Computed example of a mutant assay.
Amino acid sequence: PDLVLMVCALASAGYFLVIFNTPLRMSTGTSFAPMGISYAAIAGSLLILEMTRRVTGNALVIISLVFLAYVWGGPYLPGFLGYPGLSVGRFFSQVYTDAGILGPTTAVSSTYIILFIIFAAFLQASKVGDYFVNFAFAAAGRARG
């Protein structure tokens, strides 16, 4: 199964790399987006959900599915919760662009979060992290909370 998922991820990413600098990319998020973009976006989104399930468990996947349910259930909700709705193709072609999944979330995780991980690894390897823990115990070791 891992090999099949890997091939699917490469195919989905490869399709977007091929159409990246073409006029087809400009149609994403509109009703003129070809179904190929939508199919690749659906496959990519499902692969991201599967990766999230493997890394963090079911909690984030369930939250994501609740928000996805709102996308298609929104037109049937009353009052200010409702909205006109989107087609499946239009929604996924917009979500899987540099304005959606591949945009700010990927940028933040690839620039800022990696810095915190590297800094934490440095503190752990140099034993400076133990100094902070020992200092905290010395300062407030008897206090609760």
Rank of each mutant, 00 (worst) to 15 (best):
Y15K: 00
Y15T: 14
F16W: 09
L17I: 04
I19Y: 04
I19L: 09
I19C: 14
I19K: 14
F20D: 15
F20N: 03
N21H: 07
N21I: 08
N21A: 06
T22E: 05
P23W: 12
P23T: 04
R25C: 09
M26N: 15
M26Y: 15
S27I: 04
S27D: 07
T28H: 07
T28V: 06
S31V: 15
A33S: 11
A33L: 08
P34S: 04
M35F: 15
G36P: 11
I37C: 10
S38Y: 02
Y39M: 15
A41D: 05
A41N: 10
I42H: 05
A43T: 15
A43M: 08
G44T: 02
G44D: 13
G44M: 06
S45H: 02
S45V: 04
S45D: 11
L46V: 01
L47P: 08
I48M: 02
I48H: 07
L49I: 12
L49A: 05
E50T: 03
E50D: 05
T52G: 02
T52Y: 04
T52I: 03
R54K: 01
V55T: 13
V55Q: 11
V55W: 02
G57T: 11
G57P: 10
N58S: 13
N58V: 13
A59R: 14
L60R: 02
V61G: 13
V61M: 07
V61T: 13
L65Y: 01
L65S: 01
F67V: 06
F67L: 15
L68W: 05
A69D: 02
A69K: 06
Y70L: 11
W72Q: 12
G73A: 09
G74M: 11
G74N: 09
P75R: 05
P75C: 11
Y76C: 01
L77H: 13
P78V: 07
G79M: 04
F80A: 12
P84K: 03
G85I: 09
G85S: 13
L86S: 14
L86E: 01
S87N: 15
V88A: 14
